[in-house]
């Protein structure tokens, strides 16, 4: 580690990485909160969202140069992608998970792994395995703040993920549907007796989680490109983030995501862990948390589970 500006550079890199982890971790944590089940197809839903976003964006943008329309069309594409991917998430739940709700806890987990393979292989079959470039909807020329180089893309990641997370918190805490979600996460049977339509709450949970994954997928795709296996590692990392923060806990997922992004970056930069071992940092932390505080960092402190 050299200068102080290098420290802040790593901090910025880690924060943006963590922001994306957090956004995706929310999907895991919401589904777990409601159904006590890990949706292992979540990473592939993210990939699907990135493809939809890519196609819609390219279609809307056409040949137009960088400018207002390109910028707007990116967010229209993101919105459409979120809606389509949200619907996909609901469909997956109806087809692959709902019939297994009464089965042993292992069954939906295996079903999820199957869905994950169907999605990634299906994407490879339909769209090919090569990486595709999602163009930046703005001039991504970096600017310097106090020796730290920041790209507009990084700023966008932070802003979009912050908006999404805040919107989710407000929705869960301040709306009737949010209240219903909290109720279902506490006790499904009692909620049903109280007149809550549990099935539609579960569908909504999948819709929101998948939509968030789609937006995360598009944010990553700008930097990492779009390809069928793009959701695999990032999905696993987000899962780790959700567990580290305390699975089932929204605040925990955000904390876990940011923490993971920072630890990965600084683990390599300061501790000198070889970059080839970068992925092991996350999983090492996962094991450590499971051993020391299995409920996760915020698992017990906050009772509110969604």
């Amino acid at each position: 580690m050299g200068s102080i500006s290098e420290f802040f550079q790593h901090l910025m890199n880690g924060l943006t990485l963590g922001g994306i982890y957090a956004l995706i971790a929310l999907g895991y944590t919401m589904v777990y909160g409601i159904l006590k089940f890990i949706n292992f197809a979540h990473g592939d839903i993210l990939m699907f969202g990135a493809y939809i976003g890519l196609f819609v964006f390219n279609f809307l943008r056409g040949d137009s140069p960088l400018g207002t329309w390109t910028f707007i069309s990116f967010f229209i594409a993101m919105l459409i992608s979120m809606i389509v991917t949200g619907a996909l998430g609901v469909a997956i739940e109806r087809i692959a998970y709902k019939p297994l709700r009464k089965a042993s806890r292992l069954a939906p987990l295996l079903s999820a792994i199957g869905v994950s393979f169907i999605l990634s292989n299906g994407a490879a079959w339909m769209w090919g395995t090569q990486s595709r470039k999602l163009e930046y909807p703005f001039d991504n020329a970096p600017f310097t703040v106090g020796g730290v180089v920041i790209t507009p893309h990084q700023v966008m990641i932070l802003i979009v993920s912050l908006i999404m997370m805040l919107a989710l918190i407000i929705f869960v805490n301040n709306t009737r549907m949010g209240k219903a979600m909290r109720a279902v996460s506490l006790d499904q049977d009692t909620s049903r007796l109280m007149g809550i339509n549990v099935n539609s709450v579960i569908s909504l949970t999948f819709a929101i989680g998948s939509a968030l994954a789609a937006s995360g997928g598009m944010l990553i795709a700008l930097d990492f490109k779009v390809y069928p296996s793009m959701g695999m590692m990032i999905g696993l990392k987000a899962f780790v983030a959700a567990v580290v923060g305390g699975i089932g806990n929204i605040g925990g997922a955000m904390l876990g995501g940011i923490l993971l992004g920072l630890l990965e970056t600084f683990g390599v930069a300061i501790l000198g862990i070889p970059p080839a071992m970068k992925d092991t940092i996350s999983f090492g932390i996962l094991i450590l948390v499971l051993l020391v505080k299995p409920e996760g960092l915020l698992g017990k402190a906050v009772r509110e589970k969604v």
Partner: peptide, 11 residues
């Protein structure tokens, strides 16, 4: 298969 090289490049 890595996608993020920012840490190495920053160094």
């Amino acid at each position: 298969g890595d996608k993020d090289f920012k840490t190495q490049l920053t160094k």
